[in-house]
Each structure stands twice: as structure tokens, then as C-alpha cells.
Computed example of a mutant assay.
Amino acid sequence: MKALVINGHIKWPQIAEGNLNRIIFEKSKDVFNQNGYEILETVIDNGYEISQEIEKWVNADVILFHFPINWFGMPAKTKDYIDKVLMSGYGKIYAGDGRNSGGNYGTGGLLKSKGIIVNTWNAPEETFGNSGQLLENHSMEEFTRPFTATLQFVGVRPLPTFAFYDVFKNPNIEQELVSFEEHLKNHI
């Protein structure tokens, strides 16, 4: 079994150095190692070869993709990685949108793996689904749906998303890391 662990954090000096995402990256690899997985890894900010990334996606049984939410989306460099790797993976990662082979839109994925999205947020958890809050009409899972839909499009079965909340102003990192480890062990 192989696990692809992708660190999508992009360093912003003096604002977001990437320490938490580095810890999540190492914790993820540790959990997969403890469960007998061979680790394939990518740190987007360190650069990558598109052809090697395509092979990692094709060979992974589980893809764990973690990144911070910056301005209500993934960092631009992380989105660039998705665009370049997935678009270049035509014929290996996906074969059209599914309709060209008589299926529904979004059924052209060639991968047969599982995927987990992990996010870090400055927002506190109560921002989601609570009256008077910025995202009162959305759960975190609803908000991150475009990310899990991307996985589904290429044939990856999304597992429940995990979020680290309030990481700048009221972090509870130690407890969230314990919860994350349990979440990961329960779903891989």
C-alpha cells in the first residue's frame, strides 16, 4: 500500500512560515508508516516534476492533501500544482469528463484510490453553520466541497475532511493533532 502525502503550504515570511503544516506533514507520514504504507511525498513549495507527480497520483492507494485556507481557497501555488499535474495527467489520471464514454459528468477518473483533504484555518470552528457568523450557511465540509469534488473527478473516493481551526489566535494544536491522528487511523 502506498500513501501520497502532499504539503500544500506556501511560505509567507513573517505571516505563515509553515511550521504547523510541516508538523501535520510529518504526523501524516508517521501514521501511514505505522500502518505499513510506503510513503510518496511532495512539498509543493520545494518544487516538483510534473511527470513524477503524475506517477505518484497513479500509484497511490491513499492521497492525503493538506493546505491552509488562504482567503477562502487553497494557496495559488497549490492550485497551480493541481492544474499542472491533473491537466498533464490526461490518459493516466483521467480520461475526459466521463460523458465521452457514456457516463455522467465527473466520471472519467482513472484512479481507484481514497483521498483525505486536511485544512488549516485562521477561522474558529464556530464560523461555520452558526447564525451571525461569516459562514453561517455552510458547514466546513460544504465549504471544502470543491476540493473533494476535484478528487472525485479523477476517481479518488474522498474520505471525511479534517480541519485545524483558529490556528493563529486560539490554537489548540496538541489536542487537534491527537484528533487528527485518530481521524486518519479510522479512515485509512
Rank of each mutant, 00 (worst) to 15 (best):
G73W: 02
G73N: 10
M74I: 01
M74S: 00
M74E: 00
M74W: 00
P75G: 04
P75S: 06
P75H: 02
P75W: 02
K77R: 12
K77Q: 12
K77A: 04
T78E: 00
K79P: 03
Y81W: 15
Y81G: 01
Y81N: 02
Y81L: 02
I82E: 05
D83S: 04
K84T: 01
K84P: 01
V85F: 01
V85D: 01
V85L: 03
L86Q: 02
L86C: 05
L86D: 00
M87L: 08
M87C: 03
M87R: 07
M87V: 00
S88G: 13
S88E: 04
G89R: 00
G89W: 01
Y90R: 13
Y90V: 05
G91N: 06
G91F: 05
G91P: 06
K92V: 00
K92M: 12
I93C: 14
I93T: 06
Y94F: 15
Y94E: 10
Y94R: 07
A95D: 13
A95I: 00
G96H: 13
D97G: 07
D97P: 00
D97Y: 08
N100L: 12
N100D: 11
N100S: 13
S101Y: 14
S101L: 14
G102D: 13
G102K: 14
G102I: 04
G103A: 14
N104I: 05
N104Y: 11
N104P: 02
N104M: 12
Y105S: 11
Y105Q: 10
Y105A: 12
Y105N: 12
G106C: 13
T107E: 15
T107P: 07
G108A: 13
G108W: 09
G109Y: 05
L110Q: 15
K112N: 15
S113A: 14
K114N: 11
K114C: 04
K114V: 00
G115E: 09
I116A: 13
V118A: 15
N119F: 09
T120Q: 00
W121G: 01
A123P: 02
A123Y: 08
P124L: 10
P124W: 07
P124Q: 09
P124F: 08
E125M: 14
E125N: 12
E126D: 15
F128L: 11
F128T: 02
G129D: 07
N130W: 10
N130G: 05
S131Q: 13
S131C: 04
S131F: 10
S131L: 12
G132Q: 09
G132I: 03
G132F: 10
G132D: 08
Q133I: 02
L134A: 10
L134I: 04
L134N: 04
L134C: 03
L134G: 02
L134W: 09
L135D: 05
L135H: 12
L135E: 07
N137Q: 11
N137R: 09
H138P: 04
S139L: 11
M140S: 13
E141M: 06
E141S: 13
E141P: 03
F143M: 15
F143E: 03
T144V: 15
T144K: 03
F147K: 02
F147R: 03
T148I: 10
A149E: 15
T150M: 04
L151Q: 06
Q152F: 06
Q152M: 11
F153L: 10
F153E: 09
V154C: 01
V154L: 05
G155I: 01
G155H: 03
G155S: 05
G155T: 01
V156H: 05
R157N: 03
P158C: 10
P158F: 06
L159P: 07
T161M: 08
